[in-house]
Structures are given as C-alpha cells and as structure tokens.
Amino acid sequence: MARRGRKRRLELEAEYWRLLAAGVGSVEACRRLGIGRKTGYRWRAENGGLQPDYLPEASCSGRYLSLLERRRIASLRGRGLAIREIAGLLGRAPSTVSRELRRNSRPHDYGRYDADLAHHRGRERAGRPRRSKLSTDPELKAEVQSKLDMEWSPEQIAAHLRTRWPDRPERHGTSATRPSTEPSTKVPRMA
C-alpha cells in the first residue's frame, strides 16, 4: 500500500532549514512558509534537529554544475560542439566544462559523456567525509532534541551542554586546539 499524505516538498523543507540556520524560530519559520507547526516539528524530529544530508537540486550552490547543465553538456558534446562553444551556451567558463568532462568521463563509458553518471559521481565526491556528532552519539542527540522541542536557541543549548558535561568537550564542541575564551592569567611583560 502506498504511503498516505502529501509528497515531500524538498524545496520547502530546504527553505525551512535555511530559516532555522538564520536564527528564525521553528514556529515563525513555519508561519513564513505557510506550513503547519507539526510539519516543522516532524522534520526536526526525523533528523534529530539537524539539517538532513540530502539537499534538493535547486538548493545546491550555483558554483556546482546541476544535472540539467550536465545533460546539456552531454547533448551539445554529442552534436560535436567544442568545449568553448558549450561553455558559452551554458554561461560557464571553458575550464569548468573541460574539467567536468575530464573528471567524470571514464574509459568504460565508451568515449561518451553520460550526464546522469557524471552527476552521480560529482555528488558522491561532494559528500560529507564524516558523520556529524549527533548522528553518532544517541545520548547527545536526545539531549539536543529535547531542548529543541522546548524551542531553546542554539546558544542556549551550547551553554547547557557545557554545564551538563564539563569534562566531555567533544560533546559541546570545544577542543584542546580551539582557543579558550577565558581571560588569560598570563601577566603582560613591561617594556
């Protein structure tokens, strides 16, 4: 049986996460987007209060080639156009098109540039190299989620984590390599 309810609106969800990252509260973000508060709470609960790893195509930076651009490259390349001509039609630098063809064409592709394969290869390379702290530490994730449910700000949560686990800096984002914000006890030298 198919899943009931509306289809997931990735663009709307991505905008919700952008608003949260900009410091807008969950209720206000839902109001601005015209969605129910329960939808916003569900999106946060599903992801432990963190923006999900998947991003819809339109929310990716314009710095990277989109699937549509890659398909245009494949089509234009199939017609025999030169790299500079393709770049001009796409509004991209010739070096971008050249690099794309070099990075994402393989010998076993029979000398053809396959846009779908190239897009998949590019997205794989762009993936996050390590998992986030909240995805690997269930206790920390539960603590952060409980504070998000109470609509605490990120600053409030960070301060709470420092007081809750003062001897576990990995749980509140401080490390030995990060400079301390405490005043220095070092006496300045007199000249």
Rank of each mutant, 00 (worst) to 15 (best):
S105H: 02
S105M: 01
R106P: 08
P107G: 06
H108M: 00
D109G: 09
Y110F: 12
Y110A: 13
Y110K: 15
Y110E: 13
Y110L: 13
R112V: 04
A115V: 00
D116H: 03
A118W: 00
A118C: 04
H119T: 06
H119D: 09
H120V: 14
H120Y: 11
H120C: 10
R121M: 08
E124V: 13
R125N: 05
R128L: 12
R130I: 00
R131I: 04
R131K: 10
S132L: 08
L134Y: 05
T136E: 14
L140K: 06
L140T: 05
K141Y: 07
A142V: 03
A142L: 01
A142H: 03
V144M: 11
V144F: 12
V144I: 04
V144A: 12
Q145G: 05
Q145M: 14
Q145F: 08
S146F: 01
L148V: 04
L148Y: 03
D149G: 14
D149S: 15
M150W: 03
S153M: 12
S153Y: 09
P154G: 01
E155A: 15
E155G: 06
E155W: 01
E155C: 08
Q156L: 05
Q156D: 12
Q156H: 07
I157N: 09
I157T: 11
A158E: 13
A158S: 13
A159H: 07
H160N: 00
L161C: 02
R162I: 05
R162D: 01
T163P: 00
T163S: 15
R164G: 01
R164E: 13
R164H: 14
W165F: 04
P166S: 09
P166L: 00
